[in-house]
Design a binder for these strands. Structure first.
Lengths: 226, 226
DNA sequence: CATTAAATAATAGTAATACTTTTATATTAG
DNA sequence: CTAATATAAAAGTATTACTATTATTTAATG
């Protein structure tokens, strides 16, 4: 069955683009090809000139969609977190038990997506890799505060607040729900980065390690009501 | 009493510089002034030309010490982690009790240093801010693997392995000591960044929050032997 | 179908940056 | 005093990120 998301549109803050890339053929090409290229080159070596060459378009045309490559990265990040948020809501919705709900959320945040759903003409695994490698750069810079005011990180923050709510439902007496939620979301990326690049700091290299680590943590740190 | 560190020299990997900045007057000026300027401008807007102007020296002279500004950032990071490692060893050395030892380590990692010791002609609090704001950029880039092979992150990794050892001493049966250690070291920086820039994701804005969060976590996650 | 508006392409240009090269000058060590 | 080394000054190069201009194509509307 076709995924629901394929008939919906992620509502991405219009501050992130000059012209909506979902509104044209060229826009779609920009998104899908930029994922490939940033994945291959890294954000530093990637630029709009190279992208233009690859999609038989022109640098200046791309600038009509995005202010610069970091804005594009923020857009791609919003897409990623939007998809995660969507899965989080859909896949935890029916779960009654608070603890099980939270654990499912953590699964979604940590495990590689399996049956990639048909939403998207782009490669979701490559997008995930980009987030692991580059997301930190989309919000570590001098303009972070004004970017933030503009709502560039709305989806990301809303996602974290959803986790906070789940944590509160499991254990309302826990004192650091926000810190814990940030920790899990950001830490999961961090763990994968370390697995890839700092092997000596990795306990065991397995996809499920990251999930197990947080599961163990959650179960011990939170005291379920009943 | 004068700190021991003032009579020692941090042993920073020679891969990080072309000429040892500790070996000359100009080198010292480069270090202390770059801390001020990166703190003020952020690493992106900072460059060697501007630095040269501020210390009445020349761009090209600075290039004889450091390959580029990111290498300088890695050097400053090594300095920071070197000081933390030093404090970690000195201040936990006499503590017998494993758990107390680990908690002291976490204090050092999370709390703002108080009685700044006399090691250094530079501003340690500014250096700490730089690490919070910019450290992630020193190891999120395409050359990370070769940088790493060259030993650019030796001190950082050794520091983490010290924490791992402390964790193992408290609870040898714990399955994720490395993940937990990375988490604490990196997460502490992350928490401060979020406190500063994502207020809505902060539980309570207080310096001690970060320490309390990890203390709570450690006490619940690890099962002391006795 | 004709007209108009909008989107895109092609080209060139600008300003800044990151870094190199060359040459001159100052400092230091033997 | 001499020679080696460190630094300064100045100019130059290649790249990048972005803008501006004009031409061409496409789509939308009456």
């Amino acid at each position: 069955m076709e995924s629901l998301l394929s008939s919906l549109k992620l509502n991405i803050s219009s501050c992130l683009y000059l012209k909506d890339p979902e509104s044209s053929e060229l826009g779609h090409k920009i998104l899908s090809k930029s994922i490939e290229m940033i994945h291959e080159l890294g954000i530093e070596s990637f630029n709009f000139k190279k992208l233009g060459q690859q999609i038989d378009s022109n640098e200046s045309s791309i600038y009509r969609y995005f202010e610069n490559k970091y804005r594009l990265l923020q857009y791609l990040s919003a897409m990623y977190w939007g998809i995660i948020e969507y899965r989080l809501v859909i896949e935890t919705n029916a779960i009654e038990d608070c603890s099980k709900k939270l654990l499912m959320a953590i699964k979604i945040l940590t495990l590689k997506p399996k049956g990639i759903d048909s939403y998207s003409d782009f490669d979701q695994l490559k997008l995930r890799d980009i987030i692991i490698e580059e997301f930190t750069k989309s919000y570590h810079h001098k303009d972070i505060d004004s970017d933030n005011e503009d709502g560039n990180f709305k989806i990301y923050k809303r996602l974290i607040l959803r986790i906070v709510e789940m944590i509160n439902n499991v254990d309302p007496s826990y004192n650091f729900p926000k810190a814990l939620a940030c920790h899990i979301v950001e830490g999961a990326l961090q763990q994968y980065y370390i697995q890839r690049h700092f092997k000596s700091l990795t306990d065991r290299k397995a996809e499920t390690q990251v999930y197990k680590f947080y599961k163990d943590m959650i179960l011990k740190v939170l005291n379920p009501k009943h």
